[in-house]
Amino acid sequence: MTRNLRIPGIVRGSRIQFFFNGREITAFKGETVLAALMAAGIKTLGVDPHGKGRGALCGMGVCYQCRVSIDGRPGRRACMAQVRAGMVIETEKDLP
């Protein structure tokens, strides 16, 4: 990423680390998984049955397009889940 996508001048929670597809990513306590991933420049959250990427749409828990596997639990909405230290997040391949 060329630039930090976190808006400067905001008091945030404590710094934590989590994993996305094996890659270690820094986030702040209190952020949603979606916010933490978007801030790291990650937009592709899953793979559709045709092999195409799938990303967040509504950002408010309605469309279920941002689902990811969190700590082995499939189908969690990234926009509604809060990021936690050590969380293991993985993209899912959708069933045909």
Partner: peptide, 16 residues
């Protein structure tokens, strides 16, 4: 993304 989703991201997490 939905415009509202983008707004939520900025308002609710301070992320562009």
């Amino acid at each position: 993304m939905a415009a509202g989703g983008v707004q939520t991201l900025m308002k609710g997490a301070g992320v562009l």
